[in-house]
Computed example of a mutant assay.
Amino acid sequence: MVAWRYPPPHDRHDLGRDDVAGLLARSADGRDGVEPVLDEDGALVGLVCLGVEATVPGQPHRQGEDGAAEASGGGAEDVLDVGLGVRPDRLSAGVGGAALSALVAALRAEPVPPRAVRAVAREADARALAVLARAGLTARARFTGPGDDVFVELRGRLDALGETEREDDGRPDGAR
């Protein structure tokens, strides 16, 4: 993943060697960290971020509808933060939607699944927003984050999330 290079302006997603330790770190409950997404041949084609790893500085994600702070980790009353990253040469190939579908299925199978999932994408990242919307997440907040970019926070109840199969024509649109 540290060798992946995205075209501008999405080169903000590029990682460096200093990011490796953070990619390997996991919380004790397994809800914070990064999971690889492999294709049918076992090649790394993406990643799924969970918990704190899926959040963006400046995100209002810790405030619930009642104003009380929400946890990001497991438990029936909790909201799990999720994020997706796709290898640059696999953008618009359905990797993000397939990874999100697999994640939703795995979360539903947990003994105590989270009540909802939450994700963030840059407002200018039409491809990421489309994948999240097809899964059933809806926009809940906009905020300014790193680089003065505008981000959209989306959320959906786990039991209401659906299929995320690609509905586009596969052409790149300049996102992630």
Results as ranks from 00 to 15, higher is better:
55 T>D: 13
27 S>M: 15
27 S>Y: 15
36 P>R: 02
30 G>R: 11
56 V>P: 14
27 S>E: 14
55 T>R: 14
43 A>C: 08
37 V>G: 05
32 D>A: 10
54 A>Y: 05
38 L>C: 03
44 L>F: 09
50 L>G: 03
49 C>W: 06
54 A>H: 04
27 S>V: 15
51 G>V: 10
29 D>W: 13
52 V>S: 14
46 G>D: 12
54 A>D: 12
47 L>Q: 10
50 L>I: 09
38 L>T: 00
34 V>M: 02
55 T>Q: 14
44 L>N: 10
33 G>L: 11
41 D>M: 01
42 G>W: 04
42 G>P: 03
28 A>S: 13
40 E>D: 04
55 T>W: 14
47 L>Y: 06
29 D>T: 13
39 D>T: 00
56 V>A: 13
38 L>M: 05
49 C>H: 11
47 L>T: 11
52 V>R: 15
43 A>P: 03
30 G>V: 09
42 G>E: 06
35 E>H: 02
47 L>K: 06
52 V>T: 14
33 G>H: 08
27 S>A: 15
56 V>G: 13
56 V>M: 15
54 A>S: 12
55 T>I: 12
34 V>K: 00
35 E>I: 03
41 D>K: 02
36 P>S: 03
47 L>R: 10
55 T>G: 13
32 D>N: 11
45 V>D: 05
55 T>A: 13
51 G>C: 10
44 L>D: 05
44 L>I: 06
31 R>P: 08
49 C>S: 11
49 C>I: 01
37 V>L: 10
31 R>F: 13
28 A>R: 13
30 G>N: 05
27 S>K: 15
50 L>P: 04
29 D>F: 14
56 V>D: 13
43 A>R: 04
52 V>A: 15
31 R>M: 10
50 L>E: 07
53 E>S: 12
53 E>W: 04
39 D>F: 03
45 V>T: 06
37 V>F: 07
56 V>E: 14
43 A>S: 03
33 G>A: 12
31 R>C: 09
35 E>T: 02
32 D>G: 06
35 E>Y: 02
27 S>P: 15
56 V>L: 15
44 L>V: 06
47 L>V: 11
52 V>C: 09
34 V>N: 00
35 E>F: 00
40 E>K: 00
43 A>L: 07
41 D>F: 04
32 D>Y: 03
51 G>M: 10
52 V>Y: 07
27 S>G: 15
